[in-house]
Computed example of a mutant assay.
Amino acid sequence: MSSPSKRREMDVMKLMMSDYKVEMVNDGMSEFYVEFQGPTDSLYQNGKWKVRVELPDAYPYKSPSIGFVNRIFHPNVDEMSGSVCLDVINQTWSPMYAALMMRDKEHYEQKVREYCERYAKPEDIGSHPEESSDSDLSDEESTSSDEEMAGPADP
Rank of each mutant, 00 (worst) to 15 (best):
M16E: 12
C116K: 01
M13C: 05
Y119N: 01
F32E: 12
D78Q: 09
K21I: 15
E147F: 05
H128L: 02
M16T: 12
P64C: 04
E23A: 03
W49N: 07
Y97W: 05
N90L: 13
M1T: 11
S81G: 00
V84Y: 09
E117H: 05
E106P: 11
E123T: 02
A99S: 10
Q110S: 13
E114L: 06
E117L: 15
G82C: 15
R8W: 01
S127W: 03
M80I: 13
L137N: 04
F36R: 02
K6Q: 15
M10K: 02
V88H: 14
Y59H: 02
L15D: 05
E31T: 10
T40S: 07
R113N: 11
P4M: 05
F68C: 07
R7T: 10
P75L: 06
S144T: 03
Y61M: 03
T143K: 13
S142L: 09
G47T: 02
G82W: 06
G126M: 13
S3G: 06
F36I: 12
L137C: 07
I72E: 01
S63P: 03
Y97D: 01
S42Q: 15
D146C: 12
S81V: 06
D124H: 04
V12M: 00
D27V: 05
D139L: 15
V22L: 06
L100K: 04
I72K: 07
Y108R: 15
F32W: 00
S94W: 06
S135R: 15
M1H: 01
L55K: 13
L55F: 00
M101H: 10
I125D: 05
P60K: 01
S144D: 14
I72G: 01
P64D: 00
M16Q: 14
P129W: 15
A99V: 10
S133Y: 00
P60S: 01
R71I: 03
Y44A: 05
P122E: 08
L55Q: 05
L43N: 10
E9H: 02
G67W: 04
M101D: 08
R103M: 14
E130C: 11
S142D: 14
E106R: 08
E140G: 01
S145P: 08
G82K: 12
D134V: 04
S135E: 15
D27G: 08
Y108A: 12
Q37A: 11
D57G: 00
L100G: 13
L86H: 14
F73H: 01
V77A: 08
S18V: 05
K111G: 03
S145Q: 14
D11S: 03
S3N: 07
V69C: 03
E31K: 04
E109Y: 11
P60L: 04
L43Y: 04
H74D: 00
D57M: 07
H107K: 06
H128I: 08
H74S: 07
K111Y: 06
L137V: 07
S63L: 12
P155C: 11
L43A: 09
E131A: 08
Q110I: 10
D139T: 10
S127C: 05
S83F: 14
C85R: 00
S144Q: 08
G38S: 02
S30P: 00
D124W: 00
E109Q: 15
M149C: 12
